[in-house]
């Protein structure tokens, strides 16, 4: 984070404070100015005025934030604050929920992913996702990793491909090894790639899911509480992996654990009950000197 950025945030704070003093005690605490942090690098994902309704339930209220590339952005907040909903908007997984309606724009590398004619297959290839509980397919480890590329036709297996000479087992092997290596799982499973993935431990399954996601070669990886179902050792492995991945990928991670957010993320967005983004800033800043009283209360455990 450069010096100028910090200065900019400072200015924002002064502005917001003046607003609150003029309108008195009853002011709504959500200050758009506290969320205009722009981060260190190029903006990868820009979210503008995002609203999500589940039927009559207003789950996310006018959220705007820019997510910088090749960094870790943590989303924290109490249960039901909309952080997972927000995450699922970034690869349009909310389309799969019938009752959900999304308004606003999300731009990925300058293209609005909510405009007409967006190819969801292409979008989700570029924005991968890892879920809360490990969910490998009931297939072999190798098939799990190569599942995405196979279905996209990047790797051809099967009888027809073999007959026509288009099958390339070497390429598949290389991709599987590379993806597992990147997910720090290769050493543990290299001798049993044909075993069923459900035989792995929870932490290994979660890293397999990350490898499966990496095999599709995304730009952005969304993680929805990736370690909440794991023990402390598996959790620390996942955390190391997240930091490592941020060198090449844009990682957005939802977490319940503030320690985890503090450990792994470069910037943190705090959502509070009611689906509002209250504050978004450098992780260090959020945890040491938040602007909002409510965020400070939440972080110090007084609320949420």
């Amino acid at each position: 984070m450069s010096q100028t950025d910090t200065a900019e945030t400072r200015t924002n704070r002064t502005e917001s404070q003046s607003v609150s003093t003029t309108t008195g005690e009853t002011v709504e605490e959500t200050q758009a100015e506290w969320t205009t942090y722009e981060g260190g690098g190029e903006t990868k994902l820009a979210v503008d005025d995002l609203d999500v309704h589940y039927g009559s339930d207003h789950a996310l209220k006018g959220v705007s934030m820019d997510i910088p590339e090749e960094s870790v952005t943590a989303l924290i907040g109490p249960s039901g604050c909309g952080k997972s909903t927000f995450l699922r908007c970034l690869n349009r997984m909310n389309d799969r929920i019938r009752a959900a309606s999304v308004d606003g724009t999300v731009t990925l590398d300058g293209e609005n992913i909510y405009q007409d004619g967006v190819d969801l297959v292409e979008l989700r290839k570029r924005v991968g996702m890892v879920f809360q509980s490990p969910n490998p397919f009931p297939k072999s480890i190798r098939e799990n990793v190569s599942y995405g590329p196979r279905k996209h036709g990047d790797i051809e297996t099967g009888l027809l491909a073999r007959l026509t000479g288009r099958a390339d087992p070497g390429r598949e092997e290389a991709l599987v090894e590379q993806s597992l290596e990147r997910a720090a799982l290769w050493e543990e499973v290299r001798d049993r790639l044909d075993d069923n993935a459900l035989g792995l431990s929870g932490g290994q399954q979660q890293r397999l899911c990350i490898a499966r996601c990496l095999a599709v070669d995304p730009d952005v990886i969304l993680m929805d509480e990736p370690a909440s179902a794991l023990d402390p050792i598996a959790t620390s492995k996942i955390e190391d992996l997240i930091e490592d991945l941020a060198e090449d990928y844009t990682v957005v991670v939802v977490t319940h654990s503030m320690q985890q957010a503090a450990r792994v993320s470069d910037q943190t967005a705090v959502f509070l009950t009611g689906g509002e983004l209250v504050e978004y800033d450098d992780t260090e800043k959020i945890f040491e000197n938040p602007e909002s009283q409510r965020v400070e209360d939440y972080i110090s455990g007084k609320f949420g």
């Binding site: 690869n91 997984m93 799969r96 969801l120 297959v121 292409e122 979008l123 989700r124 290839k125 991968g128 996702m129 879920f131 509980s133 969910n135 490998p136 397919f137 009931p138 599942y147 995405g148 279905k151 996209h152 899911c209 499966r212 996601c213 599709v216």
Partner: peptide, 22 residues
């Protein structure tokens, strides 16, 4: 489990391919 369908969709795999392969 819906988890399988979600996982497959998140990898950008189409609905029919998900049904057939998972």
């Amino acid at each position: 489990p819906d988890e399988y369908r979600d996982a497959s969709a998140a990898l950008g795999v189409s609905k029919w391919q998900t049904i057939r392969s998972v």
